[in-house]
Amino acid sequence: MVGAALKCALVYFVFVYLDDRWLGWQTITRPIVVAPITGLLLGDFKTGIIMGASLESIFMGISAIGGAVPADATSASIIAVAFTILNGASQEAGLAIAMPIGAVMSSFGALEMALVAAPLVPYWEKLAQEDMNKFCVQNYIFSAVYQLIPAAVMFIAVAYGVEGLNNFLNILPGWVMTGLNAASGMMTAIGFAILTSMIWDAEVGIFFFVGYVLAAYLHLDTLAIAILAVAVAITMFFNNKKLIDLKSELSAKGVENKGEEDFF
């Protein structure tokens, strides 16, 4: 079991690191890719391919929107294939074992995002200003280390059972998990606050609330809101253009208009 667990963790690590960090395709972490590869490594390629097809149909409907995924498709698929091949179990039984592990992996991912990724943000800001080459290299290394943690969690889950991990998550008082999840949600406010303070313009600042109201009250899509905003911007652009044209016209005739200026 330990050998198989190691293979599963390896497939998980390699494919997630490669896709998430280097390709950005969100393609080779899909069940239809990792399931055949797991099958190949565990000596039953054909079962892997066939399971890949059914796992892909199951997980296709579930996509990560807003970072909340019920079960991590990649790890759940790898484990489902491993259990089916190693225990000669049915696909359904394999999936029944895999789903809880996928759910644990998903919680660990959220935990890591809150506890590791967010606190590193100021460090990246500092490093970007000091040395960009170091910034790049450290991003690659940190990403690999970052990905090793869930791979290790997955190894433990497959080799020694998911109960231990669930017990670990249960040792933490409920409020700690709630608090960390709340913190993770509010982290986005920091990013938006920095962005807002960068682009704030007192003259047109009220448009922040126009956008807010269109989204919060009217639930419009961002594209619809963008079209409205662009319409306002274009109107503004041409009004100002007329004003500038008028100004330059006046200043061209400036000499003749001298007398009139006193009148106004």
Binding site: F192, L195, T196, I199, W200, D201, V204, G205, F207, F208, F209, V210, G211, Y212, V213, L214, A215, A216, L220, T222, I225, A226, L228, A229, V232
Partner: peptide
């Protein structure tokens, strides 16, 4: 600013 407001919501 409009888009940042919408994304904030």
């Amino acid at each position: 600013l409009t888009m940042v407001g919408a994304m904030t919501a």
